[in-house]
Every structure is written in C-alpha cells, then in structure tokens.
Nucleic acid binder design. Structure first.
Length: 483
RNA sequence: GGCCCCAUCGUCUAGCGGUUAGGACAUCACUCUUUCAAGGUGGAGACACGGGUUCGAUUCCCGUUGGGGCCGCCA
C-alpha cells in the first residue's frame, strides 16, 4: 500500500517497436527519480492497441531494463487485462454528460481531415454526433451501428504546471472532442493512462515532450472524473544528427544494438543521464550512486539534445579503461565466443593468457567488439595485414634482418617480453642500427598492424611458434614475389 | 494550416543582472613512447537577431528568425 508521501513513478512503454534509446532514457529518469526519493518505480505495458502489440516486444523491453539495471518495484501491469476497469470510468463520464457516443466512420473522418490538411486548413471534429436528434440516434442504435465514445471538451482554457517547462496553457478551441473508447470497446491512450496513473497512485508523470500536447486532454479527464492530478515533467527529445527525432532512419537506435556492439550498461546509463540533465558541476564520469544522489527533475534542460555517439564511445572507453583485467575478461567472454576468437571450452583454460591480453588492450578498446579490430591477431591466423604498412616495411633489408633475428628468437627458451627485448637490443647493437628499424617491420610482419601494445609483450602473447610461423610466411611470400 | 515546446562553442552542457562566459566530447598543435592507444600541456571555437526593463543584460519581458513536436478509434 502506498504511503502518503511516497513517490511513485512509472515507465509506460507500448510494445509496438524495438526498445528505443529515447524510451531507455525516459525509463532511466523515472528510475533515478524513484531511487533518489526512495519511491517506487512501476512498469506498465500500454498494449491497448491490440493489433500492434507483441509478446516479443514486451520481452525486449524487460530485457533492456534489466540490462541497464533499472529494476522495477511493481508490475509489469498490462492495460489489456484491465479493460473492464476502463469501461467503468467511461460509463461514468457518459452518465455525467462528459462524454458521448460517436457513430462516425473513422475512414470518413480521416478523409475529411486529410483533405483539410492538404488545403492547409486546420481540422477538428465538428461534434456532429453530439447534435444528433433523439430519432437519429435511435435509428443508429437500432441498426447496431458501431459507436465510439468521445470526450466532450469543456469550453474553458486548460492550464497545468510542468516541472521542466513551467506553466503550459491551452485553449479549449484547440482541443477536439477526442475518442476515449474505440468502437471495439478498448479505451484509447489518454483515458487508460489517466485511469491507471490514478489507480496506481502515480505521483509524478515523467515522459517525453511529444506527450505534452496530450497532457491538457488528460488534465480535462482528471477534472471530469474528479481525480487528483499527478505532477508532470516532460523530457526533451533525443534528436539524430539531422535534428529530427531519433528514429530508425538514424541507424542504431535500439538499445540492444548498443549492447551487441559492446557498450557497457553503466556507461550507457551515465551517458543517457547526462543527455538532458546535468548535476550542475563539471563531473561527467559518475558512479550510479552519485547520479542517484544528485538527480533532480529541476535540473533538466528543456531543450532537445542531439545524440552524440562519439562522446558515448569515449565514455564507454573510459569505463573499460578503469576496469580490472579480471572484470574486462568477464565482460569480454561472450564477445570472444561470438567473434570466434576463443572457443567456449578454452575460456578458462587460457585464462591467464587472456587476462594478459585484456591488460595490454584495455586502453585501446572503446567498445567491447573492438577486441576484434584491435587484437584479432592474438587469437587467430586469419587476421588481415595492413597493405600500406606492409609496403612501408617490407623490403630486402628488413627481410634479411628479420630472417637473421628469427634465428635468435628461435633460441629463446623462455619466450617472455623481457628475454625478447634483451635479445633484440643486443642484436641491433651488434648490427649497429637503431632498434626501431627492426621493431617496426617485426610488428607489421607478426600482427599486420603498425600500432599496438609494446612489441615485446605483443610477441610474448602471440607466442614463439606463431611468431616464427608468421615471419616465415612473410619471408616466403616475399621471396616468391621478388625471386 | 492550427496549436505547443525550445534557443550558450560543431555536439552535450555550467551560468540563475556585473564572469578574461567555465567544463566535457570532437578537432588542431606540442609532449611522453619502439609504434598505436591512453595520458599530460596548450590552441582555436558559443551567448541567433531586434526592441524594451535596468546604472548594467548571456541572464528578466516582448517580438522576429530558426529548430523541433503534436494535430489517429497509435502511444
């Protein structure tokens, strides 16, 4: 049972698409607000659009919230299971004269509306069914003509306070008699939302600004039903780089796409928290505990924000960098397997070796899947050689040098970075050349890349056999081409 | 066409009448290094415009412009 002063917020997704980044942020802000106030975070699935809702989507939403760590205290409640409740409220509105039956065909109205908009005219339902004579109405009822229920918008301006936007005012003339119950007896969003927010004791409605135009309608419903109103806070939108609302056109907008690319949930949370909200100081990388402590609806910036993926990547890289080797190893496990870098059964067997790779690659990963881009050569032989790097370092001189040095490498019994370095330093000294003249070609020959962790530890981790094999292949290919 | 929302560097933002307009990402130099990355140092980079109010406006008010959202028997 709810306490008088308890904060209760909800996440009310409709399971009709993938789990959008914007929905994730809305969920996060609700959750942060609840946790900050030691209140309750409630999950309610708005599935009154029977055709478009799907079971899979509900699961995706639950998975997404779970991944981000946004645990819910109640629910999920399903609106589709509460139809009789809504019907009761609709009946009350009809009985009190706040709503009326509409027998119009929606296709007809849609045509009128489209025609008007095409002619740059505004269009609003003209209440023709409200003005039906008793006889006309009786005829339609007798013929069992399908009927929806419209709310009769009262003739006075609607004013409400928004925590983010301050006072919002709207003239009655700008609100049409909206449908509250469809012909099929299922209520629409505005009605179901108001009834549920009331019945579930929601104290703060935190949702995206695209709903701000619905709010006056909902306020009217609260008033007609004589229900207490919650506080409202409308969050700015997340925009794509073209400044349009983030959508499928912008590529990856599904939360799970980010999980698959190897973003960390804690980085995601940190980044999303800062997209539209600021703690007021210069701190950007913040622990969840601190975010919760500092979070406040009053510090939400009302302006829409463009999603900056580069900054997300930077932040994710910071989180990876700050991790322990063991932690990174654990996070990387599913990616090792999916990228076919390490077999499942080798994961524990090769633990020590993998831990060392984690250590040297840590500051080079922005996302977990970068392990493939940046370190594939550690794991498998089918990595690619950078063509321009090869061109730069592959010539008679470097081949001769490498061939001679490989003999020395071969003799190292304890193939570790220290021994490799000692051998190489001694070798180049005898040759009277700077170390880099051997280091750079050697790196390209063994890893295919110009850059990477220190050469000696790299060679150690690739291992003696594979280093020698790769060098041999390079020499062989070179000789075949150049006689 | 109507209604609503918004406006500080390219991007995310701090600022709540008097500041050399601060930070972060990105960018550019330099530095460190066997290379790349990470790190360090530094540079360039913003108050959309026009009116008020005020001794004084980035800040308050109005307008213009620009951007965004909504106008479904979707949510």
């Amino acid at each position: 049972m709810k306490k008088d002063s308890e904060v209760r917020v909800r996440m009310a997704p409709s399971p009709t698409g993938f789990f959008h980044l914007g929905s994730a942020r809305t969920a996060l802000y609700n959750w942060l607000f609840a946790r900050h106030h030691q209140g309750k975070f409630i999950l309610r699935v708005e599935d009154t659009d029977v055709q478009r809702s799907s079971k899979e989507m509900i699961q995706t939403i639950l998975d997404g919230l779970t991944w981000l760590g946004l645990n819910w205290d109640e629910g999920p409640y399903f609106q589709s299971e509460r139809l009789s409740t809504y019907q009761r409220y609709v009946q009350e509105l009809i009985d009190k004269g706040y709503a009326y039956y509409c027998y119009c065909r929606s296709e007809d109205l849609m045509k009128e509306r489209e025609a008007a908009l095409r002619n740059k005219q505004s269009w609003k339902y003209d209440r023709r069914c409200l003005r039906l004579s008793a006889r006309e109405r009786e005829e339609k009822e007798k013929a069992h003509q399908p009927r929806a229920v419209r709310f009769l918008v009262p003739d006075h301006p609607v004013v409400f306070n928004d925590i983010v936007h301050k006072e919002i005012k709207r003239d009655a003339a700008d609100i049409e008699d909206f449908i509250i119950m469809r012909q099929n007896g299922v209520p629409t969003y505005n009605l179901a939302c108001v009834v549920d927010d009331y019945e579930m004791g929601i104290t703060h409605v935190i949702r995206a600004v695209e709903h701000i135009t619905n709010t006056p309608k909902q306020v009217l419903l609260y008033e007609a039903l004589n229900l207490p109103k919650p506080e409202f806070a409308h969050l700015p939108l997340i925009l794509g780089e073209d400044r349009k609302k983030l959508s499928k056109r912008h590529g990856a907008v599904s939360l799970m796409a980010y999980q698959e690319r190897g973003f960390l949930p804690e980085a995601m949370v940190n980044f999303l928290a800062l997209l539209g909200w600021s703690p007021g100081d210069d701190q950007e990388i913040m622990s969840l505990k601190r975010i919760i402590e500092r979070f406040s609806l009053k510090r939400i910036n009302p302006a829409n924000a463009i999603f900056d993926q580069q900054k997300l990547e930077w932040m994710n890289g910071q989180y990876i960098y700050q991790m322990s080797d063991q932690e990174l190893f654990d996070r990387l496990k599913p990616f090792f397997i999916r990228l076919k870098l390490v077999a499942q059964e080798d994961l524990e067997k090769k633990r020590e070796w993998l831990l060392k790779i984690c250590k040297v690659l840590k500051k080079r990963l922005k996302v977990l899947t970068d392990i493939d881009k940046v370190g594939r050569y550690f794991f498998v032989e089918d990595f690619e050689y950078d063509k321009t790097a090869l061109e730069k370092h592959l010539n008679k001189k470097t081949i001769d040098l490498t061939e001679e040095f490989s003999l020395i490498l071969n003799k190292i019994s304890d193939f570790n970075a220290r021994n490799i370095e000692d051998s190489l330093r001694e070798f180049v000294q005898q040759k009277g050349i700077p170390a880099r003249e051997l280091i750079h070609p050697l790196r390209v020959f063994v890893t295919g890349k110009e850059g990477g962790p220190g050469l000696f530890e790299t060679l150690e981790l690739v291992g003696k056999e594979r280093c020698l094999m790769r060098i041999k292949n390079i020499i062989k290919n070179y000789e075949e081409k150049n006689g």
